[in-house]
Write a protein that binds this DNA or RNA. Structure first.
Length: 101
DNA sequence: GGAATGACCGTGA
DNA sequence: CTCACGGCCATTC
């Protein structure tokens, strides 16, 4: 049942605190039964109701078609962006943020 | 059945 | 720091 994985992936993304961000790979790792590619796919299909703007690539950049709105929304939450890349060092959530309180 | 595509990642030169 | 390669998983042709 891949629905279960979708569910866990969506839950992980929904659990990202405001003002924080996570990478596709980080989410995949946290969820376990997933991969970065799958996370991206899930967001494309069913990410409309999730804080998808808090999900970035490993280097802090984002996909070309998302850059505009992504940066806009993140800045609105107080996330610092430098030279087209989010400052992961300061805003990346700590591993285990899901089950962690 | 195989090849190409995509909201990707880690490693090594 | 940047660029190139192989690996990753699921969908689509």
């Amino acid at each position: 049942m891949d629905e279960a994985r979708h569910e866990r992936i969506r839950a992980a993304i929904a659990a990202i605190p405001e003002g924080s961000v996570a990478t596709y790979g980080q989410i995949a790792t946290e969820v376990g039964e997933a991969s970065a590619r799958l996370v991206g796919r899930v967001l494309r299909e069913d990410g409309a109701d999730l804080p998808w703007h808090r999900v970035l690539r490993a280097d802090g950049s984002s996909a070309p078609q998302l850059v505009d709105e992504q940066h806009q929304r993140l800045r609105a939450e107080g996330v610092e962006i430098r030279d087209g890349r989010v400052v992961l060092a300061d805003h990346r959530v700590a591993s285990g943020w899901i089950s962690e309180r």
